[in-house]
Amino acid sequence: MTVTPSRPVEPPRQAEPAERSPGRKDRRGDALVAALFVSPAMLAFTVFVIVPALGGLVLAFFEWDLFGTPVFVGLDNLARLFTDPAMWQALGVTALFVVLGVIPTTLVGFVLAVVVNVNMPGIGAWRVLYFTPMIASAAVSAIIWVNLYNGRSGLVNQFLALFGVDGPNWLADPTWALPALVLMMIWGALPIVIILYLAGLQRVPEDIYAAASLDGAGRWRQLWSMTWPNVWGTTVLVAVLQAVSFVSGSFEVALIMTDGGPLGTTQSLALYSYKVAFTERDIGYGSALSLFQLALIIGVVLLSRAIVRFRKERG
């Protein structure tokens, strides 16, 4: 028994203001107000984010051990990138982290947000449980997950044994270490995704559900045909944040739990850069690795946008 929605659902308009009124010129007054509104944030952002970021990246052209005087070495560090096999492996690991991490985190977070977005007695207390992974620091989470993943006595393998599966020694297995870390990172990332979607869901007009079906299958379809398009803006935000966190933010987890091993299979570019810069105290090359990563990301974004535009123009 499925009933299709009685009227098509129009997602809220999320286009850029600039695109919404392409012909209109900025009104002088508006531009002034906008500048006033934007400038405190941009001033702070420039001084404390952009300048330090450039300062860090410029070090790619220097040789520096943290304590001595930085020595200008031109393109030496950048040239070294292309002959370094560890760099290429780390690049692959970063790509895997993003592919395995971002999409599941986003989808599962969305579904869980819908699940807890409900008014029931005592729901508030239960909902708090969903936020708890975010509260634990990386070091504390690591202790817990190392226990869970242990090959012999860990709960994960004890659970698998119930089904007759002989689980691997997760964190020391070149095949399974990366998926194990991704699973843990998804766990840690879910709260922020759930919170963002919860906020997004509050802006979905309720009347779109009015005539929709009430049975299970219908609800599942309604979830993807009506709710999902209505939170698209949130999804974009979540995807960007998760991309940031899987590319660079979460290297801490791998550092504590596997130290990038075994055989470099969990060593992302960010972790490799950190180790080069601060363990081996070769800040210049560490910075070159980060610069390369940044260039690649900008390249991927520009390329994907070009493809989208190309398709639009053709279609």
């Binding site: 420039t46 300048v51 970021a53 450039l54 300062g55 990246l57 410029v58 070090l59």
Partner: peptide, 10 residues
């Protein structure tokens, strides 16, 4: 300006 400031940091 930002680039200049960043270089000045070195």
């Amino acid at each position: 300006t930002a680039v200049a400031a960043a270089l000045a940091v070195i």
